[in-house]
Amino acid sequence: MTFFTEYLADPRTRDALFEQTLEHIYLTAVPVGMAVVIGLFLGILAHRSPQLRSPILSVVSTFLTIPSLALFAILIPIVGIGATPAIIALTLYALLPIVRNTVSGLFSVDRAVVESAKGMGMSATMRLWKIELPNAWPVMLAGVRVATLLTIGIAAIAALVGGPGLGQEIFTGIRRIPATGSLESLLGGTLFIVILAVLFDLFYLAIGRLTIPRGIRE
């Protein structure tokens, strides 16, 4: 196997993989960031309003049913080829775990806690920001973590329709199957994505340590 001796030893490969890794991080962080903002809003809305809850959740889960290649492709005529269609599509995919966990996180907050906050004269906005969201945060963070893992994996498919990221390396490999060198590309792209996923996971672990108050930690 020439994976380490030749493939990774080649500085050109290393440079390419490094650049694609950065692109992949961009392709993950931006959609997840946008999905957090939108998902927080939709999640709070779905928690507040029983009428909106099921429409919001079913629309958001419908996004995830649409195969990624199709969603990337539909967006290309609208926003052009490149990172943009991928970012939009990945944002839509990342919404479901975030919205769902925001809703269930908010529901998991003890009603007595919210009532006592109300009883002490906190306004609805204060209750949300000072009591409900901090207590829902562990569940919400778990949702963001799942959304990130999902996004990292799906982002690879963006390369098929001209997107950036580590999917390009995998795609290069696929086009050359079963020629020599194709396995190295497949392994290289896949391995770097797995490493990225592990790093993101560690990142969330650290975020959890830093942001989840000791009083509600497991």
């Binding site: 003890d110 007595a112 806690v113 919210v114 009532e115 006592s116 906050a117 009883g119 002490m120 009591i131 901090p134 207590n135 108050p213 009083g215 509600i216």
Partner: peptide, 11 residues
């Protein structure tokens, strides 16, 4: 205001 379930803020 004091309630049976107390409702201390756990965080």
């Amino acid at each position: 205001y004091v309630i049976q379930q107390i409702g201390l803020f756990p965080h």
